[in-house]
């Protein structure tokens, strides 16, 4: 399973981003491989369509679970129809969000 965390910075000590589509980075943790990847979001600064673009980016990376704050309606449609599950998280470090997502997933 691959878990993505919407993050303000490229480190696990970075804070979780405020808005999914404009998240500057996605930190992707691959449980099977036990490895992590930093994915920069090229649409972080665009005025419109960032949510759909970011959702497509995560689908292209084979993400199964997303830990993020507010996800807009269009991005939500892409992610949920693309089979991605959500874990709502806010106001914490990316590391804590990953832990939270993994814990929720095993409950």
């Amino acid at each position: 399973m691959k878990i993505a965390v919407a993050s303000n910075g490229p480190h696990w000590s970075s804070d979780v981003a405020d808005v999914f589509g404009r998240s500057p980075y996605f930190l992707v943790f691959d449980e099977e491989a036990g490895s992590a990847q930093v994915v920069a979001n090229p649409g972080a600064g665009i005025t419109s369509g960032s949510g759909v673009g970011a959702a497509q980016l995560l689908l292209d990376h084979g993400v199964d679970l997303l830990a993020a704050p507010k996800v807009g309606p269009q991005a939500h449609k892409v992610l949920s129809e693309g089979g991605v599950r959500f874990c709502f998280c806010k106001g914490m470090q990316a590391r804590a969000a990953l832990k939270e997502a993994r814990r929720e997933e095993t409950v």
């Binding site: 649409g43 419109s48 369509g49 960032s50 759909v52 673009g53 689908l59 892409v78 129809e81 693309g82």
Partner: peptide, 23 residues
């Protein structure tokens, strides 16, 4: 189509292509 669309009005979820007319 998804790669070319600079408005991000298309998304390919593998089983279908979603269109967002408002974008």
């Amino acid at each position: 189509c998804v790669r070319l669309c600079r408005a991000h009005a298309l998304a390919d979820i593998g089983t279908s292509v979603l269109v967002f007319p408002d974008l």
